[in-house]
Design a protein around this nucleic acid. Structure first.
Lengths: 168, 168
DNA sequence: GCCCATTTGTTCGTATGTATA
DNA sequence: TTATACATACGAACAAATGGG
């Protein structure tokens, strides 16, 4: 199925899992097969599986719950939408600026009606722009337990098995 | 120096390196100490060092060059700026929309001079907004070889050591 | 040009802790 | 309690790139 051996195995595996998520074979909310199962399926060590899963998690596509499974969080399209939306937003603001520039240039010799129409058009464009940005902001700010994710209740020191104490 | 043992060692180490980058002890463009050196310094295995470096690389703070070293790419502040700028941008667009709303509401009974002043003010706000978004877009779109980074010239198959062939 | 040491990157194996069922 | 699963951490090996002798 995969014959591009020019790339590391964990990247190929991550790409394959991404494709499965995008195609719907791994639906959002469902569980990814366990590390051991993936290790047997793909014929690689658990290290490669972990590396692939880590890459997907870094991209925000999956989230792991210890003791349970790794769950699909979102599709690659939804993640790519953020960048695409940002690009669209840039284009919209640019057009908006050009329109406003035209208004400022021709405002001396235009009638009130035309001015009114232009302002209404500007208002429509800005409304669409605003809606996109709100969606973009909410999607980036809300559902992301990324980074630290402070222990909400009790710090509950997890473990100190071998060499957890690190210093200079 | 670090006594919070409630978190994994590689996360503590990543946080410490982040702080060093932020404080300037690890300047942008300089090289991070090698894996072996960091392993001795912090008293952890190379696995922990690799995990910490991987986290910093996933955040876009450092980039590694095989055979040479891992170099500091940007500061955490500059990375956080993207989100802050997005937030500011959201606020600015919101204000802009409110101003435009007021213009549309009061355009019937205002003089040309006042309308002109408001349009000029809108134009100034939109200009600032546009500049911020352009900076944000260029910073996200340009210097990022993230994701796949297709081989630009020759695919140049790198290696196939043990079990690179993976299948279903 | 060739050899060698260093460094990053990838991959293997294994062990342990914690969480869930 | 037992079993499964994720997460962390240890050690070791090899490939590729870099740079010095």
């Amino acid at each position: 199925m995969i014959e591009d051996v020019g790339r590391p195995a964990y990247q190929q595996m991550a790409a394959d899992l991404r494709a499965q998520i995008a195609s719907g074979k791994l639906a959002v909310g469902s569980a990814v097969p366990s590390t051991a199962q993936l290790s047997k399926q793909y014929g690689v060590s658990v290290t490669v599986v972990r590396a692939a899963i880590n890459q997907l998690r870094a991209d925000g596509l999956v989230v792991g719950q210890p003791g349970k499974a790794v769950y699909v969080r979102a599709t690659p399209e939804a993640m790519a939408n953020e960048r695409v939306q940002l690009q669209d937003l840039a284009g919209q603001v640019k057009e908006l600026r050009a329109s406003l520039n035209d208004v400022a240039e021709r405002e001396e010799s235009t009638s009130i009606d035309q001015l009114r129409a232009e302002v209404a058009d500007l208002r429509r464009q800005l409304g669409s722009c605003h809606a996109q940005l709100m969606d973009l902001y909410s999607r980036m700010g809300q559902p992301y337990p990324h980074e630290d994710a402070e222990r909400e209740t009790a710090p509950k020191r997890r473990r100190a098995p071998t060499g957890t104490e690190i210093g200079t």
